[in-house]
């Protein structure tokens, strides 16, 4: 057995799956509202229950999102020269021949992804609460409805990219979100600056 290093704490893993589960269910029920997908509605016992489910999942989602700030926000706000270089080589995703610069705990793609989810997550939640609770204010309703759906478009693009990169595109990464650990040897290669900062070299 290779020596492992902990990348994600237990509460981070639990929170990630609460966030991911609520988000995906929100997206599925969201699509059902948008395109009148009756089969999704009937799984939940009709659109009336689905509305309740969607609304309260929204509460779960936003609480989980706010909690996730303690895990990712500080990293997500720091970028260095290597991160710039990472974008120049497209993270090594468009060719395996380029040299990917040494990374910290997260690559800038992941960091930006986090900021996008955080910002648009808060936006979709606020607009969702607008539709939910401000029914008698036409301006709030129309703006919320528009903004909720703009944010939705961001989610349906960003989330599947994330899922692909977290599974098929980077074999082994998925295990981080299950066990919280990754092989130290691999971490030294992929995240040398992080390993250095935690003193494992």
């Amino acid at each position: 057995m290779a020596e492992m290093i902990r990348k994600s704490s237990v509460d981070e893993i639990v929170n990630h799956w609460i966030l991911a589960g609520s988000c995906i269910l929100l997206m599925i029920t969201g699509y059902a509202f948008l395109f009148h997908v009756e089969s999704i509605g009937s799984v939940l016992g009709g659109f009336n229950t689905m509305k309740t489910v969607h609304n309260w999942l929204g509460v779960v989602f936003v609480l989980s999102l706010l909690y996730s700030m303690r895990h990712y926000l500080r990293d997500a706000l720091e970028y260095d020269a290597d991160d710039k270089q990472w974008f120049k080589v497209a993270g090594g995703y468009l060719s395996h021949k380029v040299k990917v610069p040494p990374m910290g705990k997260y690559n800038p793609g992941q960091k930006l992804y986090y900021l996008v989810i955080l910002v648009f997550g808060i936006v979709i939640a606020i607009s969702g609460f607008g539709i939910w609770f401000m029914k008698d204010n036409m301006t709030v309703m129309l703006i919320s409805h528009l903004v909720h759906n703009i944010a939705f478009c961001v989610f349906v693009i960003a989330v599947p990219v994330h899922i692909y990169l977290g599974t098929l595109a980077n074999p082994g990464t998925f295990k981080i979100m299950v066990s919280g650990t990754m092989p130290l040897s691999e971490a030294k290669k992929k995240h040398p600056k992080w390993i250095k900062s935690v003193g494992k070299v």
């Binding site: 995703y93 395996h96 349906v156 692909y164 098929l168 595109a169 074999p171």
Partner: peptide
């Protein structure tokens, strides 16, 4: 958006492949 991402991911997986 969703369809495009799924298609692009499939294409990427086949043409360039995982790390």
């Amino acid at each position: 958006g969703l369809g495009g991402v799924v298609a692009a991911a499939a294409l990427h997986y086949l043409a360039i492949g995982p790390h």
